[in-house]
């Protein structure tokens, strides 16, 4: 997952290195470091914004490591889902247990159905639904859609996916 973190460093040499070390030691991927040297806080410390990717179970270790080094953490923001996708379904969506269809995606842990629009013209006629799916990465989105394709096959639903050249974003 991607984490964005605001920290404050003391104005003495070596502090930035101290702050970045746990990210690299725990195999995180540093995306950006913005060092606001000119914007000193009232406490005389220097605000720094970090953005990095890290396995979710490693975040606590990073936080404790920073705290041990005496670095103040002002804010932590985690964002799990970076890919947003849309998929359409046509068929007997409700009668084939829509809850189950959604659950199968949600249970993966890497993707979630975040929006659903359903249109049911008449009883016994095929309904149509648009689903919005969020996923951790492009690859996870592809797996989620592949999973949906499998469920749809069993339930005789037609899946309409986005074209390849825009990916699944």
């Amino acid at each position: 997952m991607r984490v964005s973190m605001d920290i404050e460093l003391k104005d003495i040499p070596g502090q930035l290195l101290l702050a970045l070390r746990p990210v690299s030691e725990l195999k995180g991927n540093l995306i950006s470091v913005v060092h606001h040297h000119e914007k000193r806080t009232p406490r005389g410390s220097i605000p720094v914004q970090l953005v990095f990717e890290i396995k979710p179970d490693k975040l606590n270790d990073i936080v404790s490591s920073l705290e041990e080094s005496g670095i103040d953490i002002v804010r932590i923001d985690e964002k799990r889902f970076f890919e947003h996708g849309a998929v359409l379904l046509i068929g007997h969506i409700v009668h084939t247990d829509i809850q189950d269809t959604i659950d199968t995606i949600d249970k993966t842990g890497y993707a979630e159905v975040v929006d659903l629009n359903l249109s049911m013209p008449k009883i016994n006629m095929a309904s149509s639904a648009s689903l919005k799916i969020d996923a951790i990465s492009k690859e996870h989105m592809e797996s989620a859609i592949a999973l949906l394709r499998e469920i749809a096959k069993k339930k005789d639903l037609l899946v309409i996916e986005p074209i390849k050249s825009i990916g699944v974003a």
């Binding site: 046509i90 629009n117 249109s119």
Partner: peptide, 11 residues
């Protein structure tokens, strides 16, 4: 043949 006008509208 299975495409519905509702699906087109949702899209």
């Amino acid at each position: 043949t299975k495409i519905t006008p509702e699906a087109l509208l949702l899209a």
